[in-house]
Simulated scan of single mutants.
Amino acid sequence: MLTFDFLDARHGDCFLVRWGTPDGTPRRRVMLVDGGPPGVYEASLRDQLSQLTPDSDGTPRIDVVCLSHVDDDHAAGLLRLLAEMRRARRDELPEPFAVKRLWFNSVEELVDRRAPGLSASVQPLIENAMTNSGAVRASYGQGRAIRDEATALGLAGNPLFDGPLTEGAETTLDDLHVTVVAPDEVALEQLEKRWREAKKRKDPEVISASYTDGSVPNLSSIVLLIRHDGRTALLTGDARGDRILTGLRDSGLLTDSDPLHVDLLKLPHHGSERNVERDFFESVRADHYVVSADGIRHHHPHEDTLRWLVESRDEDDEYVIHLTNDIAFATDALTTLRRKRSFEVDVRPATDPALVIEVGDQS
């Protein structure tokens, strides 16, 4: 059985994936994906983690932490988690959590994968941009801080993958099979192009502009297809829909003859209409669609995205669209779209810390 706990990450992402038998024999495993924007760790994530099954020494255990990409609404909570663990170790106090693995791609790793040494040559421009650009400080600075915390905690190197998580990489964590769908070579090529342009022009504004429009972190967004006991989920981060479809095709998971069916699909980029088109939902169908958003800072999920999703399905198809927050414009749009259709809408009650979705045999 796969269980998902989608926390109220406001305009970001933060959720737990648990797999194994409910009675704990063997012990249920846990993956934490993203940590939400500032405040989410203190408001809900730390408490959720404290309730996890303890390790042999009584410390709540997290089998793997995965940061989809370095962006404030995904990374801030994970930086708080790692910093708290490091502070406890430094002060010779019991660590609050036992994190066994950390998976994340630094932008430098991805750039150097195609062009070794390029990131170091652009580093002076990055330092300049960090001084003058809040966007670069928030994203690149967080990425560097997470890398440093991971190194200090002995979590560097993407264990089990032994390098960046890029399209086609696979591993098995206990009995959870993990396939990396993105980033792919096209995304890495575009990242390299941005950095080469900055180096050629010797202009830190190139770096600042890249982080301001979100292109750099989103190009590097990790997409995972996870499988356990016949159940599947596609976890998309903030990746673009076309890059996700390319990765699925290149991995042989999607063909031209039939759409890919998964039990759960987390919508890319909080349901933004800029990351997907209608063909994305025609190519990937799910029993459970999840939107992590609050509709406040950004207009997510966009009504067009919801319409494309619903119109990609037959009228009598049964599925559920889950919202991590009650968003008036989204629920209004779904109410209209539900006419003569069989799908359901599930909204996390404001009093619940997480929206819990279970797929698979619960016996």
Rank of each mutant, 00 (worst) to 15 (best):
M1F: 03
T3C: 05
D5V: 00
H11R: 15
R18P: 02
R18Q: 14
G20Q: 04
P38G: 11
E42V: 14
A43T: 13
L45Y: 01
T53K: 06
D57T: 14
V65S: 05
H74W: 09
A83V: 09
E84Y: 09
R86K: 15
R86C: 11
P96L: 10
F97N: 08
R101Q: 09
L102W: 04
E108T: 09
L110P: 03
L110W: 12
R114V: 09
A115P: 00
S121F: 00
L125E: 05
T131K: 15
T131E: 14
N132R: 15
R137A: 14
R137Q: 14
A138E: 14
S139Y: 08
R144L: 07
R144H: 00
R147T: 02
D148F: 00
L155F: 08
G157C: 10
N158M: 05
E167A: 06
A169F: 07
T172K: 02
V178Y: 06
V180S: 01
A182S: 13
V186I: 08
E189T: 11
R194Y: 09
R196N: 11
E205M: 13
I207L: 10
S210Q: 10
T212Q: 12
N218W: 07
L219M: 07
S220L: 07
S221K: 04
L224R: 04
D229H: 11
G230C: 04
T232H: 01
T232V: 03
A233L: 00
D238W: 10
A239F: 05
D242M: 01
R243Y: 09
L260P: 13
D263W: 01
L265P: 01
P268L: 03
H270Q: 15
F281M: 03
A286K: 00
G295C: 08
G295T: 10
H298T: 12
H298M: 14
H299D: 13
H300T: 09
D304H: 02
R307M: 02
W308A: 02
E311A: 10
D316E: 15
L323G: 01
T324G: 00
F329K: 06
A330C: 07
A333L: 01
L337T: 01
K340L: 14
P349G: 03
E358G: 07
